[in-house]
Nucleic acid binder design. Structure first.
Length: 573
RNA sequence: GCGCCCAUAGCUCAGUUGGAUAGAGCGUCGGACUACGAAUCCGAAGGCCGGAGGUUCAAAUCCUCCUGGGCGCGCCA
């Protein structure tokens, strides 16, 4: 759509330069200039700023350049209805409605594929997200990263990337040791011992369940055994059971991973960490200090060198991360995306430094940060605390408001801005959630199409002659919005910004609702004029398809019917 | 103290990577159903885009400084 105008502009510029009316531009004009859809409809369908950008190189005022271009307009197909020069030198194009109508053909033809593109050109990418430590079920704070990562993955898939969704399991290290210890305390309690959970431990009920299972399978075998004997099996079972819980939490949100990478197995036990460190050591990227081993991350812009081996001989998290990224890139991805909680942003420089030393172009490792979720209850902030028992599990929210509303809510805002999440509100007033507004619009469209079917009207199909009978500005506007979806999806995918689709949906469905209401008594979709009816039904079907496709990319369902919400209780006298 | 993120309507936030008169939802006030779905729509009120400089035809957007908030700055993960 935009490409039509860009093409005309490019040819017009070439002609003006061939004429000698404009000097050649050192930079490629089309690369720098923009063709935008102006917000003000009085400014036409598409507007370009080339004339202003050209002013310096041409040594002429922008409006004069615009004039030169206008006189030499190359419009082979005759799609430009009007070309106006406005403001400081904007070229405002008004196109023949035929352009939209003709383009609408692809929506019906592409169907569920409409909105998808191939800007990714088959690149193989890895998206790593969630990666919550397997020490307990997921809480609401994790939900945002999960949904965001999943939606980004879907967007990348929709733009021709081959995506691997990956969960990195931090099943090694101190937290897991503490987890096993917590299980052991519970295990001892099951045998009647009066032991308390230490300060640093995991108090959740699920730990007791794991302890019970160990009691049943092993009896009192580990009761008096030294930690070296039970640490392994206790940790292993706990991680296995907790991962199953996490998997369930994610499934409830319709999130599935292709790969679950165990830090313990893939990096520690495999020797990958040792090999990576040996390699770094051989290249003098490591040095010993205070009994520990440091990586010279300052070589590549980090504030300070970071330890990779503790003085007790254990590798640090960074060491694992180095080996992990080496292993990941070794799997042949064109690039990898790490979706991290914003509280880990400080780790980015050191990982980038490491990746560079691994011989990987740092541009191939991309990050997107998901900011914190501010939890509120009835408008009042609160913090989740395991000891205070104020942890709100992701599962309870999803079960209460549904996967659609939860997903939509988490995608409502740019992921690098903080998000307020009112637990009480989310559970109670789920009707306020904008997802219902959007879904209702889809259901309404389905209802119209259903009605037409019931009246024996032929199923909607592309019909240029019929579409030409549509003259309402709202109808052209709707067509334009629908046709903007592919560009929108591509932009959102490359920027890792799924929220753009959310806004597209809200705005598009809003335009439809307004159109519907405005003409519900005068120019109905199903009306007396068979030609217009045919055209409008097709337009509605395109709209429905565009919305359904956008919703699918966000992992939200597009219902064909919705039940009426419960009546407001407050109306009683 | 240093680094990253943020600051836009009463509240929560968009703003198409520098474009023309800064938008939406919620909230407030006032309207619209014997009609394809009222979970809808229409209208009104509401702004020094945190502040000050700078870059240029053009700045909410880019640069510098300041103010105010969040998060980091472990031999935790």
């Amino acid at each position: 759509m935009k490409a039509v105008v860009a093409d005309i502009l490019e040819k017009t510029l070439a002609r003006a330069q061939a004429d000698g009316a404009l000097p050649p531009w050192p930079e490629r004009p089309a690369a720098r200039s923009t063709v935008d859809a102006p917000k003000n409809p009085a400014h036409g369908d598409w507007a370009s700023n080339v004339a202003m950008l050209y002013a310096k190189a041409a040594g002429k005022p922008p409006r004069q350049i615009a004039e030169i271009l206008k006189e030499r307009l190359v419009d082979a197909e005759g799609v430009v209805l009007a070309l106006e020069i406005a403001g400081p030198g904007f070229l405002n194009f008004r196109l023949s409605p035929d352009v939209w109508w003709r383009e609408l053909e692809r929506v019906g033809r592409e169907g569920e594929a409409f909105g998808r593109s191939d800007v990714g050109a088959g690149q193989k990418v890895d998206v790593e997200f969630v990666s919550a430590n397997p020490t307990g079920p997921m809480h609401v704070g994790h939900g945002r990263g999960a949904v965001t990562g999943d939606a980004i993955s879907s967007l990348l898939e929709a733009t021709g990337h081959r995506v691997t969704r990956e969960y990195y399991i931090n099943d090694a290290g101190g937290q897991i040791r503490t987890l096993a210890q917590s299980v052991h305390v519970r295990y001892r309690q099951l045998f009647g011992e009066a032991v308390e959970l230490p300060e640093e431990s995991y108090p959740g009920e699920y730990v007791v369940e794991i302890a019970k299972e160990l009691k049943e399978s092993h009896g009192d075998r580990f009761l008096r055994a030294p930690e070296t004997e039970w640490q392994g099996p206790f940790a292993a079972l706990a991680v296995e059971r907790i991962l199953a819980m996490i998997r369930g939490d994610l499934e409830a949100l319709r999130i599935r991973f292709d790969v679950w990478t165990s830090e313990k197995r893939a990096l520690h036990e495999s020797g990958a960490i040792r090999r990576a460190l040996d390699d770094f050591r051989a290249r003098d990227l490591l040095y010993d200090k205070d009994g520990a081993v440091f990586f010279r991350s300052t070589l590549h812009g980090d504030d300070k060198d970071r330890p990779v081996v503790k003085s007790n001989g254990d590798p640090t998290y960074l060491a694992a991360d180095i080996a992990y990224h080496q292993e990941k890139f070794g799997r042949g991805f064109d690039w990898c995306l790490d979706v991290w909680g914003a509280d880990h942003h400080g780790d980015i420089p050191r990982v980038k430094a490491a990746v560079k030393e691994l011989g990987v172009d740092p541009a191939r490792l991309r990050f997107t940060l998901v900011q914190m979720v501010n939890l509120l209850r009835e408008g009042k902030p609160f913090k989740m605390s395991k000891r205070a028992g104020t942890v709100v599990s992701l599962r309870e929210v999803v079960e209460e408001v549904g996967a659609d509303a939860t997903r939509f809510y988490f995608l409502l805002r740019r992921s690098d801005a903080q998000l307020d999440f009112d637990v009480a509100l989310a559970k109670r007033q789920s009707n306020d959630n904008p997802v219902f507004y959007v879904q209702y619009g889809h259901a309404r469209l389905c209802s119209i199409l259903r009605r037409a079917r019931e009246q024996g009207i032929a199923p909607p199909g592309f019909d240029l002659e019929a579409l030409r009978s549509l003259t309402l500005p709202e109808e052209q506007d709707l067509a334009k919005r629908i046709l903007g979806l592919p560009d929108l999806v591509a932009g959102a995918a490359l920027a890792f910004e799924p929220h753009r689709l959310v806004f597209f949906l809200q705005e598009t469905v809003g335009a439809f609702h307004a159109y519907y209401t405005k003409y519900k008594t005068t120019e109905k979709v199903i009306g007396p004029d068979p030609l217009k009816t045919r055209a409008r039904l097709y337009l509605c079907d395109c709209l429905r398809q565009a919305m359904a496709n956008a919703l699918a990319m966000l992992g939200v369902t597009a219902p064909e019917r919705m039940e009426r919400p419960p009546e407001e209780a407050g109306e009683a006298e």
